[in-house]
């Protein structure tokens, strides 16, 4: 029996405790929101558009957003594993979720494997069966299994406060033209991954933000590129995505004032949080050389009050914008 199937059974039984996707999305005062994913999520922290949209889309106060994206990550946790196998990456993600105890999680994976059909995209043993099976079909199957397993793991790690896990399909690829590679076929592949995510969402009772479709789907976006290489979105791209994201949640930001100061502050906060949750020198602080310099690990929690202070300022700016 596949993990996917197990997950579906499990999700269906949990459906009452989590919000059904039919109900309208809401954020509540003091909510903690986690963004989980690969390069697309990680780079969102430099722009702040998605986070700004989340903060200003409702009346909820003191909402904190934590970007837990990691470049090149897979649903198996490849990028988060440091010196160990992907398993350790999954454990790291679960630990981060466990520390944050989020009330809402947005998850977005799929670009990497869609770009890597025919190639090896995960080091997970058994993620894709050995041999020549790096084709679309086996990639999709591995992706779905890994995705279900990850959802299980982060749902468990988040604890009882978790109200909703929202699945997000990756935005489409653009075919910008030579000397960049043709992305038409990859973008079709990505459509299959988006569909798989949609299915997972339906089966698990998750809300799904279908950025793939809302940002252009298989047609791609070419006239005015919103990516700098066909894959990775620019500032303008993220700005548009944030609007689609909010709309998919049933929000309209028409009434909101100038958010630039707020957005700048979220970017500043993201920079601090990065040093908190993904500090450099991990080898010495927490891993196998901690007996040499682990004493310096005491500095890392010192970021918490600094982040809190910035979030106070973010809340002030948010109120101004909403007023």
């Amino acid at each position: 029996m596949s993990r996917l199937y197990l997950y579906l059974i499990l999700s269906l039984s949990l459906i009452h405790s989590l919000h059904a996707s039919e109900a309208s999305f809401e954020l509540r005062d003091g909510d903690r929101v986690a963004l989980v994913g690969a390069t697309f999520i990680e780079r969102a922290q430099h722009y702040g558009h998605i986070e700004t949209a989340l903060l200003t889309g409702s009346e909820a106060q003191d909402v904190v957003v934590r970007n837990l994206g990691w470049s090149g990550d897979s649903v198996f946790g490849d990028s988060r594993s440091y010196f160990g196998p992907p398993q350790e990456g999954r454990e790291r993600l679960a630990r981060a979720i466990g520390e944050l105890q989020p009330t809402v999680i947005f998850v977005c994976y799929g670009t990497g494997p869609a770009m890597s059909v025919g190639q090896r995209w995960t080091e997970e043993k058994g993620g894709i069966a050995q041999g020549h099976s790096h084709d679309l079909e086996s990639g999709l199957e591995a992706f779905q299994n890994g995705y279900s397993q990850m959802l299980e793991s982060i749902t468990a790690a988040a604890g009882e406060g978790l109200r909703e896990v929202v699945l997000v399909t990756p935005p489409p690829l653009e075919n910008i033209g030579a000397p960049l590679p043709d992305q038409v076929e990859n973008n079709v592949h990505l459509g299959h991954f988006a569909q798989a995510i949609q299915k997972l969402a339906d089966a698990g009772g998750h809300r799904c933000i279908d950025l793939y479709q809302s940002m252009g789907g298989q047609d791609g976006v070419v006239a005015q590129p919103l990516t700098n290489n066909g894959v990775h979105y620019t500032d303008a791209g993220y700005r548009q995505i944030a609007t689609h994201w909010a709309e998919a949640l049933g929000w309209s930001n028409d009434q909101v004032g100038d958010t630039e100061a707020l957005r700048a502050k979220t970017i500043e906060k993201n920079r601090l949080f990065f040093h908190r949750w993904r500090p450099a020198n991990e080898t010495y602080l927490f891993l196998f050389r901690k007996h040499e310099q682990g004493n310096n690990a005491k500095e890392i929690p010192m970021y918490d009050p600094l982040i809190k202070e910035l979030e106070g300022e973010i809340e002030e700016l948010r109120k101004q914008v909403r007023d």
Binding site: T39, G72, S74, F83, G112, P113, P179, N229
Partner: peptide
């Protein structure tokens, strides 16, 4: 040696676990 790199490129995922040398072509982003 201790660096583990995981990179999404327009040509697919590239990983380099440990030391090594890369080349990057700015025009094609490869």
């Amino acid at each position: 040696i201790y660096i583990h790199t995981h990179m999404e490129t327009p040509y697919g995922i590239r990983r380099l676990l440990g030391g090594g040398m890369w080349h990057y072509h700015p025009e094609s982003h490869r």
